[in-house]
């Protein structure tokens, strides 16, 4: 089973055996499966991968994808096909807080490049990299539907809009202090307008 995804990252049978989602997550997954007609449970894949990513330190390991395949009774390659298509799924480990700065037109017109450069300097990393302490990953992304409040970035479920360097300082300081992982699925989003 799952030979197809072994080639991407080393597949660890021991790790696979240890994977178990929280009861809360498993219950949510069962509820999601009920949204579709009998036999169409594959439709749950994307919502379930979001939960899986949150349960697995922010990324989808081959072992987790294999586990998801079993939960939905589909083949591992079907999971990998989808996980590798969508940009919100990380196939490699990421920091606890992934700062995703939009740099498309309206954000670029309002200083996205300068924002990226500021964060790079502040955190001492380049776009795509993670700080050595595993706290922050910096990513650039395409339009997030916040063009009227540009420049902006997303972190987990939260939208940070009308960004200034001072705002970034405050956000980074707060995140550092709280030292917790931020997921898209979090219920405690705190947008800064």
């Amino acid at each position: 089973m799952s030979a197809q995804i072994h080639g991407v990252l080393p597949f660890d049978k021991e790790k696979r055996k240890q994977i178990k989602f929280s009861d809360d997550a498993l219950q949510t997954i069962e509820n999601i499966k009920k949204r579709y007609p009998e036999g169409k449970q594959k439709s749950a894949l994307i919502p379930v991968l979001h939960i899986a990513q949150a349960e697995n330190d922010g990324w989808l390991s081959p072992e987790v994808m294999d586990y998801v395949a079993e939960l939905l009774n589909i083949s591992p390659i079907e999971v990998f096909e989808v996980a590798s298509f969508y940009t919100m799924f990380n196939l490699k480990p990421v920091g606890k807080c992934v700062l995703e700065v939009c740099r498309t037109s309206s954000c670029w017109l309002n200083g996205a490049n300068e924002i990226v450069a500021y964060i790079e300097k502040k955190l001492g990393i380049k776009e795509g990299e993670t700080t050595p302490d595993g706290m922050f990953t910096l990513k650039t992304v395409e339009c997030l539907g916040s063009c009227g409040t540009a420049p902006m970035m997303q972190c987990g479920a939260s939208y940070h809009e009308n960004l200034t360097f001072e705002k970034i300082d405050a956000i980074i300081e707060k995140y550092r202090k709280e030292n917790k992982r931020r997921n898209y699925t979090d219920l405690d989003w705190e947008n800064t307008k």
């Binding site: 439709s43 979001h50 589909i74 096909e81 298509f85 395409e142």
Partner: peptide, 27 residues
């Protein structure tokens, strides 16, 4: 009535890609 979340893909706004995505596939 249900809400289905995507996962980052502009192309899933194209209606048949949206349908594929809702079926749990690549867009």
């Amino acid at each position: 009535l249900y809400v289905q979340v995507g996962a980052g893909a502009y192309i899933c706004g194209e209606e048949t890609a949206l349908i594929e995505s809702l079926e749990g596939k690549r867009g």
